[in-house]
């Protein structure tokens, strides 16, 4: 096993191919500006869903406040980028936003992650609401009207880089010893603690990492749509992200990616029918919970399925 193994090169090649293909479609105009917005939404939703999945799907800590961290990233990046109107300003803003979101995540996580299940859900919801109210009242964030005219430095290249990096990094984390420690908390907190896992530490770690990437997603959002206001990051946005994670499967990275893409497409097609879209979301949530509570993918990944098929063939050859 080495960093430059055949498998990793294959993944890298695939990613480059995907990037080039989409870039080609954009240049040739097959993906027109209208669909480019969908593309941006897909990328941002993927980052949000994968990062929430780390917290909720893998570590088992039910959070209803992910939009709060997204808003910290969005506002931080927007404010810095508006002061420093350059590419450097955008990148500094993005990282500052992500780091700040992670710090707030740690600050919030230490007291609230002692709570379990639905109590934690409500506490995180409350935290996100508090963050929203603060943005609503600060002068620098321009209150309810929000910030307009944020410089737009985000394009397909940046979206792709950050999305791919987020997915790969979070995936690496989950498939490490720390990741297993997080998963053990989801499985049985008391047993995990008895096996030497500092559960508080890893819950807070997962929460902070989730917040970090949600901050990146928020920064990309602010930079791409050049307008943000507190109302965009309310309770409903957190639910939006949760729907993706639940639909894709709590504990499946590829599930989150698929669901994020699917839902962004649905959103685009139903853009002028907000109510219908939300009713559809609601019905999907209920039906999934009743008939397939594990979501589309459960805890398995696309790669597991492929490997399973492949492995069978191998056996047959032998």
């Amino acid at each position: 096993m080495k960093a430059l193994s055949k498998k990793n090169l294959l993944i890298l090649g695939g990613l480059l191919l995907l990037y080039a293909a989409v870039l080609g479609l954009i240049i040739t105009g097959i993906i027109n500006p209208f669909y480019e917005i969908t593309l941006a939404l897909i990328c941002i939703n993927i980052i949000l869903a994968v990062s929430l999945n780390l917290v909720t799907g893998f570590t088992g800590q039910f959070s209803l406040g992910h939009a709060g961290f997204m808003s910290i990233g969005a506002y931080t990046c927007a404010i810095i980028n508006m002061q420093m109107n350059s590419m450097a300003g955008f990148l500094i803003g993005l990282f500052a936003g992500a780091v700040l979101a992670a710090l707030v995540g740690i600050l919030i996580g230490i007291p609230t992650l002692r709570l379990k299940g639905d109590y934690l859900a409500i506490a995180t919801l409350g935290m996100a609401e508090i963050i929203r109210v603060i943005f609503l009242n600060l002068e620098i964030t321009n209150g309810a009207a929000g910030l307009n005219g944020i410089p737009r430095f985000t394009n397909w290249t940046w979206l792709f880089i950050f999305t791919a990096a987020s997915v790969v990094l979070i995936n690496n984390f989950i498939r490490s010893s720390q990741g297993r420690a997080c998963i053990s908390i989801r499985e049985d907190e008391i047993a995990a603690e008895s096996m030497g896992i500092n559960t508080t530490k890893y819950k807070v770690m997962a929460f902070a990492i989730g917040a970090f990437f949600a901050g990146i997603a928020g920064a990309l959002y602010a930079s791409y749509f050049y307008f943000i206001k507190p109302g965009l990051f309310g309770f409903l946005k957190s639910i939006d992200i949760l729907v993706i994670v639940v639909l894709g499967g709590m504990g499946s990275i590829t599930g989150s990616v698929i669901a994020a893409t699917l839902l962004a497409l649905i959103t685009t097609f139903l853009q002028s029918f907000t109510e219908i879209r939300m009713i559809l979301y609601a019905v999907v949530l209920i039906v999934i919970m009743i008939f397939r509570p594990k979501g589309l993918m459960g805890t398995t990944e696309i790669t597991d399925i492929l490997r399973f098929r492949f492995g069978r063939k191998e056996e047959r050859i032998q």
Partner: peptide, 15 residues
């Protein structure tokens, strides 16, 4: 699980 029921409740609320 309680989480499944909670998510359902959120779904009903949105509905």
């Amino acid at each position: 699980t309680r989480i499944a029921v909670l998510i359902t409740a959120i779904g009903v609320s949105l509905f």
